[in-house]
Write a protein that binds this DNA or RNA. Structure first.
Length: 467
RNA sequence: GUGGUUGUAGCUCAGUUGGUUAGAGCACCAGAUUGUGAUUCUGGGGGUCGUGGGUUCGAGACCCAUCUUCCACCCCA
């Protein structure tokens, strides 16, 4: 056995106790919000049939799917001719399974397989890791958690409105105050394409427009021309980048621009409906302004999302003034289950990227202290007798719901105190011969250094108050 | 997938045109202190310099390959 230094694959991470505790804090807020809106949990396998995943994310996406080699002699059934035909052909021969790339497609697969047992509309949430063979960089990992909430089996735009509500609630509860929920509509994008005389080319137009922030108006112009959009059309498009006014005014301006296009009409009607729902829900996303003065929900005609299955509203969420890509995104897909032979089931959903939210909260120092504590009380012992004496006390503390532990051996005080310090345990109970005689134990507040001699019942009452 | 970048002690990093036994701070362990952590003082352990080849009398340093890190594209949570 050669001793090699162990390592983990590129783009993956271990999560130590301190990190997991903080991640769980995020998960619990997301989970309880989803449940509050009537979504129920679902879990699916880490691996899917490769055929379930391929073709759902576009060519780019297909390349980022982690494939799993067949078990056993995976080359057994291949011939030299197969190899000559190239990797695309060969993959089908040597790999039948793959790690899931997102949670939406497995969800659609689940819906189709269980269509007879499911009561529609079906609302589910799912919190599991996904894998992408992307090249890692900041906020981009090869294994990361997504927290999806989707509803299928209804066209109602109330679902879109509720998605906005949930995003707003989760981020607010996490302590974020400056974020923007961008919304747009595939119909609006198609309508724009038609209105500028490039009907059906919205795909190319979207990819280019999406980079507006990064490469600017001239960069986008160049890219559009390269993609074969006419100069005339580009000139007609450019005024849209700088539309001004609040959301309502934007919608009105778009009405005059897209009024005659069927797709544009559809998009505008949907967006208006979403606003109307949010209005009647008195949504904070409309009423609460960011420090910049704009409301959190913002119509953005330059928002274009890559996943090819979106057909209606699309969302993306950006935390302002931090160096991080979008932390959440989603949209409506009319025909995702159609790919699995079940047409006519419309769905809408979105996803939180927990790993990115974690990085943002860390950068903004927004994790509350309560999300960082583990044990509340450490009982320090001096010898075998004090250990025996401490056991009932320990049980009493735990029965009272106070997370506590007894240092498992009579180590030097310095060591035991250091343990409490390291673990960020706020209180230490000292149990030794003096205490056993008086029946009172010493309670030390590790933050202030103050010590009191108290009866255990008083200590429990005091600590429960603080909790 | 394309172009760049990084790797030296547990962590953050020094290390000169290639030249004796590879350093610092922090962390860790022990003692000063036999009932008190985060401050102070003293001492100590810990590295086949990411890995594998090559050039050289001699490589942490130069060359090649490979893995890894971070960044920009592409795309995306």
């Amino acid at each position: 056995m050669s001793k090699e230094k162990p390592s983990i694959p590129k783009g993956t991470r271990d999560f130590g106790p301190a990190v997991v505790v903080k991640r769980n804090y995020i998960f619990s807020i997301i989970r309880s919000t989803f449940q509050k809106f009537g979504y129920l949990p679902l879990e699916t396998p880490a691996m899917e049939q490769l055929s379930v995943l391929t073709g759902k994310y576009g060519d780019e996406g297909d390349q980022l799917i982690f494939k799993i080699l067949n078990s056993g002699d995976y080359l057994g059934k291949t011939t030299p001719a197969d190899i000559e035909q190239g990797s695309k052909h060969l993959i089908r021969k040597i790999s039948e399974k793959a790690l899931r790339y997102d949670l939406t497609v497995p969800f659609a697969r689940f819906v189709v397989m269980n269509r007879n047992e499911i009561t529609f509309p079906f609302k589910r949430y799912q919190i599991q890791p996904v894998w992408r063979a992307d090249r890692p960089q900041k906020g981009r990992y090869r294994e990361f958690y997504q927290c999806d909430a989707d509803v299928v089996g209804t066209n109602s735009l109330l679902c879109e409105a509720e998605i906005v509500q949930m995003i707003d609630e989760v981020l607010t509860t996490l302590g974020l105050t400056d974020f923007t929920i961008k919304i747009n509509h595939r119909g609006v994008l198609a309508g724009i394409a038609e209105a500028i005389g490039e009907k059906g080319r919205e795909g190319d137009i979207c990819v280019a427009i999406d980079k507006l922030d990064k490469i600017g108006k001239e960069g986008v112009r160049k890219e559009l021309l390269e993609r074969g959009i006419s100069e005339d059309a580009v000139s007609k498009l450019e005024p849209l980048y700088t539309l001004e006014g609040n959301n309502q005014e934007l919608l009105q301006q778009l009405q005059t621009i897209l009024g005659n296009t069927e797709e544009g009409q559809r998009g505008l009607k949907d967006l208006n409906d979403v606003w109307s729902y949010l209005d009647n829900l008195s949504s904070n996303a409309l009423t609460t302004a960011n420090p910049s003065g704009n409301p959190r929900l913002q119509l953005d005609v330059t928002l274009a999302r890559g996943l090819s299955y979106y057909t209606g509203c699309i969302f993306e969420v950006k935390v302002n003034n931090v160096s991080m890509g979008s932390i959440s995104g989603g949209g409506r897909y009319d025909n995702l289950t159609g790919m699995f032979g079940l047409p006519g089931v419309s769905g809408v959903g979105f996803s939180f990227g927990v790993d990115r939210i974690y990085d943002v909260l860390e950068e903004l120092d927004l994790f509350p202290v309560s999300a960082q504590l583990s044990t509340k009380v450490l009982i320090v012992q001096f010898d075998k007798e004090s250990e025996l004496y401490a056991l009932p006390l320990l049980q009493k503390l735990r029965d009272a719901g106070i997370s506590s532990e007894l240092y498992p051996e009579a180590a030097k005080l310095k060591k035991q105190m250091g343990y409490a310090d390291q673990k960020n345990i706020p209180f230490v109970l000292l149990v030794g011969s003096e205490e056993m005689e008086s029946g009172k134990v010493k309670l030390r507040d590790m933050q202030t250094g103050e010590q009191d001699e108290l009866y255990i019942d008083d200590i429990i009452a005091q600590l429960k108050d603080i909790a």
